[in-house]
Design a protein around this nucleic acid. Structure first.
Lengths: 146, 146
DNA sequence: TCAAATTAGATTGTGTTCAATTTAATTATA
DNA sequence: TATAATTAAATTGAACACAATCTAATTTGA
């Protein structure tokens, strides 16, 4: 028994480290699939919101994706350059920038539909484990589901 | 019932997204604690390895931390500048760069020891939930524990 | 042996990520 | 109603993160 007060600082006793490492590894696994769509992971999650909602403010995207304007502004400009979204100030409130999906962006959805399943094949978890992981992550995020 | 083949693309049906978001949020929560130590999160996990092992090659750090030399080189140069580590080529193999903790780096360990507990207080999980999350993350990472 | 292959780090380039600041628009209030 | 406070994005600056490439050292094997 060689326990010390410093044991809490051992990498293997940290919860945060596997969280950090796993998130990075999973994003890395997306790369080959997303390359086919000419999307980065950040661009992909923005598109997921817009595939669902057609249009959203930068503020709304940020709240949904846990990202701020410093991250989103260049991502949205890049998506605009590729023709997947349009950006325009709201008529009702000029401060608000509305991001709207284009028909080209809509068309990308059909290509993207196989990505989740292909990625799931790269993750070595049983369905019940994946469901439990999902629940715990949302709880840790402080988001109440249901 | 409005199910479609596109449901898999809904953000709320993704396992990867809460993983990505949660990891970012937790790293963000470390910031105020690590600021006191003049460390970033990446520098902190490097120091955790060195508090345990005193010295390690860049390659070894990369394997342990899931990081490559493109990330580690500037991090290690920064830690060296702060006086927490020394960097020197191995005598046995000049290709290898050995990173060694300094006495100043060792001294930092005493200050860091309160960080894990203070951070745990910011995460809203029961101990058994944290343990299960830990297990699932390492399984997803493909690292076999025990 | 000695040229080819491999390996370890460093460098470069692209793309985040976030804190802090700035600018412009809107809302609140004295 | 002016002025102050607030809000939404954009910008700036520092620090990752990783793929691809480069350089130097070591190891292989013809």
């Amino acid at each position: 028994m060689d326990k010390s007060k410093f044991d809490v600082l051992r990498l293997e006793n940290q919860l945060c480290f596997p969280l950090y490492a796993c998130a990075k590894e999973v994003v890395r696994k997306y790369r080959p699939f997303l390359d086919e769509l000419d999307l980065t992971y950040t661009q992909y999650i923005v598109m997921m919101v817009l595939w669902e909602d057609k249009s959203c403010s930068v503020k709304g995207l940020g709240k949904r994706l846990f990202l701020d304007s410093g991250t989103l502004t260049p991502v949205l400009k890049s998506l605009e350059k590729k023709g997947f979204v349009n950006r325009a100030r709201s008529k009702k409130d000029e401060r608000v920038l509305e991001v709207e999906i284009t028909s080209k962006g809509e068309a990308l959805k059909a290509e993207a539909v196989s990505v989740p399943e292909r990625l799931a094949g790269c993750i070595n978890l049983e369905p019940e484990e994946a469901a439990e992981l999902y629940r715990l992550l949302y709880k840790a995020l402080g988001v109440v589901k249901e």
